[in-house]
């Protein structure tokens, strides 16, 4: 899986309350989560997410298990999230929803083009040398390649 997009840099320990606040969770309309993503971090972010790669600090997605966080990013058109480490529930949620996530320490500037080759386990920013991502388990690769866990289960896996 090869992916690319300009980077949006995010700090360390971005919790799922920051990705989508509790006050927006109860709705029948999932576009609400897209519209209010990262509102308490930077209200201008939601409108700029489509086609980007989020390059975050360690422990991205900590806190609540709310799947709306991963869902908001996927539905907003985020190409992938790269961080040195992720909180485990968010990481599973992202893979289950088909949102590519890569654990890597990436030196990168805001807006720089980020390219990921998940099969090869490499990610690079601009013309800098590529860095290795921590490999996904075979299981997670299979889920991601299917486009998410629901798709995998519907195929009878």
């Amino acid at each position: 899986m090869r992916l690319r997009g300009p980077a949006i840099l995010l700090p360390a320990d971005v919790d799922t309350d920051l990705i989508i606040a509790g006050r927006y969770l109860r709705t029948r309309d999932p576009s609400t989560w897209v519209a209010h993503a990262f509102e308490d971090l930077d209200p201008t972010l939601a409108g700029r997410l489509a086609g980007t790669v989020l390059v975050a600090g360690p422990n991205f997605g900590c806190g609540s298990s709310r799947e709306q966080a991963a869902r908001a990013l996927r539905d907003a058109g985020v190409v992938a999230v790269v961080a040195p480490s992720f909180a485990r529930i968010f990481f599973r949620n992202a893979v289950n929803l088909g949102l590519p996530v890569a654990e890597a320490v990436l030196d990168c500037s805001e807006g720089e083009m980020v390219e990921l080759d998940l099969a090869a386990g490499l990610v690079r920013a601009g013309t800098r040398p590529p860095v290795a991502c921590r490999p996904l388990s075979q299981r997670m690769q299979a889920i991601l390649e299917a486009g998410g866990l629901v798709e995998l289960l519907r195929r009878g896996a």
């Binding site: 298990s65 799947e67 529930i89 599973r92 289950n96 299981r139 866990l149 289960l153």
Partner: peptide
Amino acid sequence: GVGATDMAAIWATGETW
């Protein structure tokens, strides 16, 4: 703890990884 998709899979299969 898990998210909703993992839980839905548990409802459907009784198992998780």
